[in-house]
Protein backbone atom coordinates (compact mmCIF):
# COMPACT_ATOMS: atom_id res chain seq x y z
CA UNK A 1 0.00 0.00 0.00
CA UNK A 2 1.20 3.49 -0.84
CA UNK A 3 0.99 6.36 1.61
CA UNK A 4 -0.33 8.74 -1.05
CA UNK A 5 -1.49 7.93 -4.53
CA UNK A 6 -3.30 10.14 -7.02
CA UNK A 7 -4.35 9.62 -10.62
CA UNK A 8 -5.14 12.60 -12.79
CA UNK A 9 -6.30 14.50 -9.70
CA UNK A 10 -7.78 17.83 -10.77
CA UNK A 11 -9.55 20.75 -9.19
CA UNK A 12 -11.26 23.53 -11.09
CA UNK A 13 -12.68 26.46 -9.13
CA UNK A 14 -15.67 28.21 -10.61
CA UNK A 15 -15.85 31.88 -9.71
CA UNK A 16 -18.43 34.50 -10.43
CA UNK A 17 -17.08 37.93 -11.33
CA UNK A 18 -20.11 40.19 -11.68
CA UNK A 19 -22.28 38.49 -14.27
CA UNK A 20 -19.36 36.55 -15.74
CA UNK A 21 -18.50 33.03 -14.65
CA UNK A 22 -14.84 32.12 -14.80
CA UNK A 23 -13.09 28.89 -14.06
CA UNK A 24 -9.60 28.49 -12.68
CA UNK A 25 -7.69 25.22 -12.93
CA UNK A 26 -5.89 24.96 -9.59
CA UNK A 27 -4.72 21.35 -9.91
CA UNK A 28 -4.39 19.77 -13.33
CA UNK A 29 -4.26 15.97 -13.70
CA UNK A 30 -1.70 15.36 -10.96
CA UNK A 31 -0.24 11.87 -10.62
CA UNK A 32 1.55 11.16 -7.35
CA UNK A 33 2.89 8.02 -5.71
CA UNK A 34 4.48 8.35 -2.29
CA UNK A 35 5.70 5.25 -0.46
CA UNK A 36 5.15 4.64 3.24
CA UNK A 37 8.02 6.12 5.24
CA UNK A 38 9.14 8.50 2.47
CA UNK A 39 9.90 12.17 3.13
CA UNK A 40 8.92 14.30 0.17
CA UNK A 41 8.94 18.03 -0.40
CA UNK A 42 5.94 19.22 -2.38
CA UNK A 43 6.98 22.64 -3.57
CA UNK A 44 5.97 25.36 -5.95
CA UNK A 45 5.37 29.09 -6.18
CA UNK A 46 2.38 30.74 -4.54
CA UNK A 47 -0.84 29.77 -6.29
CA UNK A 48 0.76 26.70 -7.87
CA UNK A 49 -1.81 24.30 -6.40
CA UNK A 50 0.05 22.97 -3.33
CA UNK A 51 -2.56 23.85 -0.72
CA UNK A 52 -5.42 22.75 -2.94
CA UNK A 53 -3.72 19.37 -3.40
CA UNK A 54 -3.15 19.02 0.34
CA UNK A 55 -6.76 19.99 1.04
CA UNK A 56 -7.90 17.24 -1.33
CA UNK A 57 -5.50 14.73 0.23
CA UNK A 58 -6.81 15.53 3.72
CA UNK A 59 -10.45 15.35 2.59
CA UNK A 60 -11.34 19.02 3.03
CA UNK A 61 -11.87 19.60 -0.69
CA UNK A 62 -13.58 17.39 -3.25
CA UNK A 63 -11.75 17.11 -6.58
CA UNK A 64 -13.36 18.06 -9.87
CA UNK A 65 -12.03 14.85 -11.40
CA UNK A 66 -9.45 12.15 -10.84
CA UNK A 67 -8.75 9.87 -7.93
CA UNK A 68 -6.75 9.93 -4.74
CA UNK A 69 -6.04 7.49 -1.95
CA UNK A 70 -4.23 8.21 1.28
CA UNK A 71 -3.33 5.02 3.15
CA UNK A 72 -5.85 3.26 0.92
CA UNK A 73 -8.71 5.61 1.88
CA UNK A 74 -10.45 8.07 -0.41
CA UNK A 75 -9.94 11.24 1.66
CA UNK A 76 -13.16 13.09 0.88
CA UNK A 77 -15.24 9.96 1.46
CA UNK A 78 -13.52 8.88 4.70
CA UNK A 79 -12.37 12.17 6.18
CA UNK A 80 -13.02 11.30 9.82
CA UNK A 81 -11.50 7.80 9.52
CA UNK A 82 -8.50 9.23 7.74
CA UNK A 83 -8.12 11.92 10.42
CA UNK A 84 -7.11 9.18 12.88
CA UNK A 85 -4.29 8.11 10.55
CA UNK A 86 -2.82 11.44 9.50
CA UNK A 87 -1.29 14.43 11.26
CA UNK A 88 -1.30 17.97 9.95
CA UNK A 89 0.75 21.03 10.80
CA UNK A 90 -0.16 24.30 9.16
CA UNK A 91 2.63 26.71 10.03
CA UNK A 92 0.41 29.74 10.09
CA UNK A 93 -2.60 28.12 11.77
CA UNK A 94 -2.36 26.66 15.22
CA UNK A 95 -4.03 23.46 16.29
CA UNK A 96 -3.28 24.23 19.93
CA UNK A 97 -5.60 26.01 22.36
CA UNK A 98 -4.03 29.38 23.07
CA UNK A 99 -5.51 29.86 26.54
CA UNK A 100 -4.65 26.43 27.87
CA UNK A 101 -1.35 25.16 29.25
CA UNK A 102 0.46 23.27 26.50
CA UNK A 103 0.18 19.98 28.41
CA UNK A 104 -3.62 20.36 28.59
CA UNK A 105 -3.87 20.85 24.84
CA UNK A 106 -2.06 17.53 24.35
CA UNK A 107 -4.51 15.85 26.75
CA UNK A 108 -7.46 17.39 24.89
CA UNK A 109 -6.13 16.26 21.53
CA UNK A 110 -5.72 12.79 23.04
CA UNK A 111 -9.43 12.81 23.92
CA UNK A 112 -10.37 14.04 20.43
CA UNK A 113 -8.32 11.25 18.86
CA UNK A 114 -9.99 8.78 21.26
CA UNK A 115 -6.75 7.69 22.90
CA UNK A 116 -7.01 6.07 26.34
CA UNK A 117 -5.72 8.46 29.06
CA UNK A 118 -2.88 6.05 29.94
CA UNK A 119 -1.72 6.06 26.32
CA UNK A 120 -1.93 9.87 26.18
CA UNK A 121 0.30 10.05 29.28
CA UNK A 122 2.77 7.60 27.75
CA UNK A 123 2.86 9.36 24.36
CA UNK A 124 3.11 12.79 26.03
CA UNK A 125 6.06 11.50 28.06
CA UNK A 126 7.78 10.22 24.92
CA UNK A 127 7.18 13.38 22.93
CA UNK A 128 8.17 15.65 25.80
CA UNK A 129 11.44 13.79 26.15
CA UNK A 130 12.12 13.66 22.43
CA UNK A 131 11.33 17.32 21.77
CA UNK A 132 12.67 18.66 25.11
CA UNK A 133 9.33 20.15 26.13
CA UNK A 134 9.37 19.19 29.80
CA UNK A 135 9.72 22.72 31.20
CA UNK A 136 6.94 24.04 28.97
CA UNK A 137 4.03 21.74 29.78
CA UNK A 138 2.52 24.10 32.35
CA UNK A 139 3.02 27.23 30.23
CA UNK A 140 -0.10 28.55 28.44
CA UNK A 141 0.32 28.21 24.68
CA UNK A 142 -0.09 31.96 24.20
CA UNK A 143 3.09 32.52 26.24
CA UNK A 144 5.27 30.14 24.20
CA UNK A 145 7.76 31.56 21.72
CA UNK A 146 7.06 30.79 18.07
CA UNK A 147 9.81 28.15 18.04
CA UNK A 148 8.49 26.48 21.21
CA UNK A 149 4.96 26.57 19.82
CA UNK A 150 6.01 24.94 16.56
CA UNK A 151 7.74 22.14 18.52
CA UNK A 152 4.46 21.63 20.37
CA UNK A 153 2.49 21.79 17.11
CA UNK A 154 4.56 18.97 15.70
CA UNK A 155 4.45 17.00 18.96
CA UNK A 156 0.65 17.45 18.94
CA UNK A 157 0.43 16.21 15.36
CA UNK A 158 2.39 13.08 16.35
CA UNK A 159 0.41 12.29 19.50
CA UNK A 160 -1.87 9.72 17.83
CA UNK A 161 1.05 8.14 15.91
CA UNK A 162 -0.08 9.23 12.44
CA UNK A 163 1.22 7.26 9.51
CA UNK A 164 1.33 10.32 7.25
CA UNK A 165 2.30 13.85 8.29
CA UNK A 166 1.18 16.77 6.14
CA UNK A 167 3.36 19.76 6.99
CA UNK A 168 2.49 23.09 5.41
CA UNK A 169 5.26 25.67 5.97
CA UNK A 170 6.25 24.29 9.40
CA UNK A 171 9.19 26.68 9.82
CA UNK A 172 7.63 29.89 8.55
CA UNK A 173 8.60 32.87 10.72
CA UNK A 174 11.11 30.95 12.83
CA UNK A 175 14.66 32.06 13.58
CA UNK A 176 17.64 29.97 12.51
CA UNK A 177 17.91 28.00 15.75
CA UNK A 178 14.19 27.26 15.97
CA UNK A 179 14.18 26.19 12.31
CA UNK A 180 16.99 23.74 12.98
CA UNK A 181 15.10 22.33 16.00
CA UNK A 182 11.87 21.88 14.05
CA UNK A 183 13.69 20.23 11.15
CA UNK A 184 15.38 17.84 13.56
CA UNK A 185 12.01 16.96 15.10
CA UNK A 186 10.49 16.26 11.67
CA UNK A 187 13.49 14.12 10.66
CA UNK A 188 13.07 12.10 13.84
CA UNK A 189 9.37 11.60 13.13
CA UNK A 190 10.28 10.35 9.66
CA UNK A 191 12.95 8.04 11.08
CA UNK A 192 10.24 6.74 13.42
CA UNK A 193 8.28 5.58 10.35
CA UNK A 194 5.96 8.50 9.56
CA UNK A 195 5.62 9.47 5.91
CA UNK A 196 6.36 13.18 5.59
CA UNK A 197 4.57 15.30 2.99
CA UNK A 198 6.23 18.70 3.34
CA UNK A 199 5.30 21.99 1.73
CA UNK A 200 7.80 24.78 2.15
CA UNK A 201 9.35 27.75 0.38
CA UNK A 202 12.49 27.30 2.45
CA UNK A 203 15.27 25.52 0.57
CA UNK A 204 16.82 24.61 3.95
CA UNK A 205 13.67 22.71 4.98
CA UNK A 206 13.64 20.81 1.74
CA UNK A 207 17.29 19.85 1.86
CA UNK A 208 17.36 18.84 5.50
CA UNK A 209 14.04 16.95 5.64
CA UNK A 210 13.17 15.53 2.23
CA UNK A 211 14.93 13.05 0.02
CA UNK A 212 12.56 13.60 -2.87
CA UNK A 213 11.14 16.81 -4.30
CA UNK A 214 7.98 17.19 -6.30
CA UNK A 215 7.57 20.60 -7.91
CA UNK A 216 4.12 21.78 -8.91
CA UNK A 217 3.52 24.87 -11.01
CA UNK A 218 0.23 26.10 -12.44
CA UNK A 219 -1.39 22.92 -11.19
CA UNK A 220 0.96 20.51 -12.97
CA UNK A 221 3.88 18.44 -11.73
CA UNK A 222 7.00 19.80 -13.43
CA UNK A 223 9.71 17.98 -11.46
CA UNK A 224 9.71 14.75 -9.49
CA UNK A 225 13.13 13.47 -8.49
CA UNK A 226 15.67 13.27 -5.68
CA UNK A 227 16.42 16.51 -3.83
CA UNK A 228 20.10 15.97 -4.64
CA UNK A 229 19.19 16.12 -8.33
CA UNK A 230 17.14 19.26 -7.73
CA UNK A 231 20.22 20.86 -6.20
CA UNK A 232 22.55 19.53 -8.87
CA UNK A 233 20.33 20.67 -11.70
CA UNK A 234 18.87 23.86 -10.42
CA UNK A 235 20.51 25.19 -7.28
CA UNK A 236 23.76 25.96 -9.04
CA UNK A 237 23.84 29.65 -8.25
CA UNK A 238 24.97 31.58 -5.20
CA UNK A 239 24.11 35.09 -4.16
CA UNK A 240 26.75 37.17 -2.36
CA UNK A 241 25.74 40.26 -0.43
CA UNK A 242 28.60 42.45 0.66
CA UNK A 243 28.74 45.47 2.94
CA UNK A 244 31.90 47.56 2.64
CA UNK A 245 33.44 50.03 5.07
CA UNK A 246 34.16 52.37 2.14
CA UNK A 247 32.20 53.40 -0.92
CA UNK A 248 32.15 50.66 -3.56
CA UNK A 249 32.63 50.47 -7.30
CA UNK A 250 31.05 47.41 -8.95
CA UNK A 251 33.64 44.68 -9.63
CA UNK A 252 34.33 43.23 -13.06
CA UNK A 253 34.84 39.54 -12.44
CA UNK A 254 34.16 37.24 -15.41
CA UNK A 255 31.17 35.02 -14.64
CA UNK A 256 29.91 37.24 -11.80
CA UNK A 257 26.71 39.17 -12.37
CA UNK A 258 26.27 42.39 -10.43
CA UNK A 259 22.62 42.46 -9.38
CA UNK A 260 22.56 45.56 -7.21
CA UNK A 261 24.95 48.35 -6.23
CA UNK A 262 24.42 50.86 -3.44
CA UNK A 263 26.88 53.31 -1.88
CA UNK A 264 28.38 50.78 0.52
CA UNK A 265 26.80 47.55 -0.67
CA UNK A 266 26.81 45.04 -3.51
CA UNK A 267 24.71 42.06 -4.48
CA UNK A 268 26.35 39.58 -6.84
CA UNK A 269 25.27 36.31 -8.38
CA UNK A 270 27.41 33.59 -9.92
CA UNK A 271 27.18 29.96 -11.01
CA UNK A 272 29.00 27.38 -8.91
CA UNK A 273 29.52 25.40 -12.11
CA UNK A 274 31.76 28.19 -13.44
CA UNK A 275 33.33 29.62 -10.29
CA UNK A 276 34.08 28.35 -6.81
CA UNK A 277 32.72 30.21 -3.80
CA UNK A 278 36.19 30.66 -2.28
CA UNK A 279 37.50 32.17 -5.55
CA UNK A 280 34.79 34.82 -5.62
CA UNK A 281 34.95 35.54 -1.91
CA UNK A 282 38.77 35.73 -2.07
CA UNK A 283 38.62 38.31 -4.86
CA UNK A 284 36.05 40.38 -2.99
CA UNK A 285 38.03 40.33 0.26
CA UNK A 286 41.15 41.47 -1.64
CA UNK A 287 39.31 44.29 -3.33
CA UNK A 288 37.03 45.71 -0.61
CA UNK A 289 37.44 46.51 3.11
CA UNK A 290 34.59 44.13 3.93
CA UNK A 291 32.40 44.99 6.90
CA UNK A 292 29.99 42.06 6.37
CA UNK A 293 29.46 39.36 3.78
CA UNK A 294 26.60 36.86 3.27
CA UNK A 295 26.53 33.94 0.87
CA UNK A 296 23.15 32.40 0.16
CA UNK A 297 21.23 30.27 -2.28
CA UNK A 298 18.95 32.10 -4.65
CA UNK A 299 15.30 32.12 -3.52
CA UNK A 300 13.59 28.79 -4.11
CA UNK A 301 10.93 30.48 -6.17
CA UNK A 302 13.55 31.50 -8.75
CA UNK A 303 14.75 27.89 -8.87
CA UNK A 304 11.20 26.72 -9.43
CA UNK A 305 10.72 29.41 -12.06
CA UNK A 306 13.87 28.12 -13.74
CA UNK A 307 12.45 24.58 -13.67
CA UNK A 308 9.19 25.81 -15.14
CA UNK A 309 11.02 27.76 -17.85
CA UNK A 310 13.00 24.61 -18.62
CA UNK A 311 9.74 22.66 -18.96
CA UNK A 312 8.27 25.34 -21.17
CA UNK A 313 11.33 25.25 -23.37
CA UNK A 314 10.93 21.50 -23.81
CA UNK A 315 7.31 21.80 -24.91
Amino acid sequence: MLAVQTERLSKVFERREGKRRTSHVAVDAVDLAVDLGEAIAFIGPNGAGKSTTIKMLTGILHPSSGEARVLGLVPWQSRTRLAHEIGTVFGQRSQLWFHLPAGDTLRLLGAIYELPPALVRQRTGELVERFALGDLLAVPVRKLSLGQRMRFEIAASLLHRPKVLFLDEPTVGLDVIAKAEVREVIREANQGGATVFLTSHDAGDIESIARRAIVIDRGRIVFDDKVSNLRRQWLTEKVVELRSEEEVEPPEIPGVLVEKVSRYGLRLRFSTQELQVRQVVGLLLERYPVHDITISDPPLESVIAAIYQGEAALR
Binding site: R81, T88, R93, Q95
Partner: peptide, 9 residues
Protein backbone atom coordinates in the same frame (compact mmCIF):
# COMPACT_ATOMS: atom_id res chain seq x y z
CA UNK B 1 -8.34 27.72 10.59
CA UNK B 2 -11.35 25.76 9.39
CA UNK B 3 -8.90 23.48 7.56
CA UNK B 4 -7.31 22.57 10.91
CA UNK B 5 -10.71 21.92 12.48
CA UNK B 6 -11.93 19.75 9.63
CA UNK B 7 -8.89 17.49 9.73
CA UNK B 8 -9.77 16.46 13.29
CA UNK B 9 -11.93 13.43 13.99
Amino acid sequence: GLAVQLTRP
